[in-house]
């Protein structure tokens, strides 16, 4: 039991406070956004699980204050109980209140983002036209050059007529490949999860760093997929013309990466020795890191909760 508890505390500190800053400084992976995205996803999942498990332990296990709350509620006679129980109960109430407040703040936000996306989708459905040449594209009549995607089974990519007239055929295909990569790699789901993690645990360095770097990495990862197929210079040319955005994920607007984002992507694409195809070994290493950081806290948490079932 205590081994598991120590394990969870260690996991929270390691993942929440140390792993993020290390990952940002990791040189060998610096130019492999796809691998980095996998690492961040694993890290986020691990951090959230470890913290959630630790909080529920604090509320329930006998030696921790929360168990006092249970006992206190159980005999319902606070002035007859020892002072320690009353104090324990109060601490647990404070902890419960804090968790409740965080959830009350985070969940409606997530819900709003999802609802806004759905409303946008149904309006698009009425207003946009079907593109005859690409089976997954909707055309929106507007001179602003914009392309974005919204997860949906029916025509998930939206391109404005402004973008269509401004791009060459190849450039348009590169932009579409970029959006398809977002959809294929489930970037929307990742951004929503990131948003939730940030609302629940905004003070953890790993979560804060993920919030600052992950949106950029997602764009670069999609850039790489498009560049592999259509060429880096075609894509760079297209990006200069068009704003491409993952669209209504609810996280990008608050990310605050500022106007440097596009120029960073362009510099990367136009660099003479740009590595858009990562080494196989590095990619494998990244996946192992991602799987490990996510799996260890999840397994520890599961083991802790099973052992808890016997205690309570």
């Amino acid at each position: 039991m205590s081994v598991l508890l120590i394990g969870l505390i260690a996991a929270t500190i390691l993942l929440g406070y140390l792993a993020g800053p290390v990952l940002v400084r990791l040189r060998p992976l610096a130019d492999h956004p796809g691998a980095l995205v996998a690492c961040w996803a694993g890290l986020l999942l691990g951090t959230v699980t470890a913290t959630a498990a630790l909080t529920s332990m604090a509320l329930l296990v006998p030696p921790t204050p929360g168990h006092g709350l249970l006992e206190w509620l159980h005999d319902c006679l606070p002035h007859h109980s020892p002072v320690a129980f009353t104090l324990g109960g109060l601490t647990s109430l404070a902890l419960l209140g804090a968790c409740g407040a965080r959830l009350a703040q985070g969940l409606p936000r997530l819900w709003r983002a999802v609802r806004r996306r759905r409303e946008h989708r149904s309006m698009l459905h009425l207003v946009a036209r079907e593109d005859r040449r690409n089976a997954d594209v909707l055309l929106l009549d507007h001179p602003l050059p914009v392309a974005y995607c919204l997860p949906s089974r029916w025509r998930p990519i939206v391109v404005s007529t402004g973008a269509q007239t401004r791009l060459t055929g190849l450039q348009l295909q590169a932009v579409l490949a970029h959006e398809r990569a977002h959809l294929r790699q489930r970037h929307h789901a990742l951004l929503l999860f990131l948003d939730l993690a940030h609302t629940l645990l905004p003070w953890l360095p790993t979560v804060r760093l993920a919030k600052a770097t992950l949106p950029v990495l997602l764009e670069m990862s999609a850039d790489d997929a498009a560049a592999r197929r259509w060429g880096r210079h075609t894509l760079a040319g297209a990006l200069r013309q068009v704003a491409s955005t993952p669209g209504l994920a609810g996280a990008l607007a608050a990310a605050g990466t500022g106007e440097g984002l596009l120029s960073r992507r362009l510099t990367r694409l136009e660099a003479p020795t740009s590595a858009v195809t990562p080494h196989r070994a590095r990619r494998a290493a990244a996946w192992i890191v991602a799987a490990g950081t996510a799996a260890i806290p999840v397994i520890t948490a599961a083991a802790t909760l099973t052992s808890l079932a016997g205690v309570c």
Binding site: R116, H120, M123, L124, V127, A128, L140, D141, H142, L144, V146, Y148, V158, S160, A243, T245, P246, G247, L248, A249, G250, L252, A253, A255, G256, T257, G258, E259, L261
Partner: peptide, 13 residues
């Protein structure tokens, strides 16, 4: 169409 474009753009920093 204008509404939709604005909706998409406000998400784009």
């Amino acid at each position: 169409a204008v509404d939709l474009m604005l909706g998409a753009l406000t998400e784009y920093d």
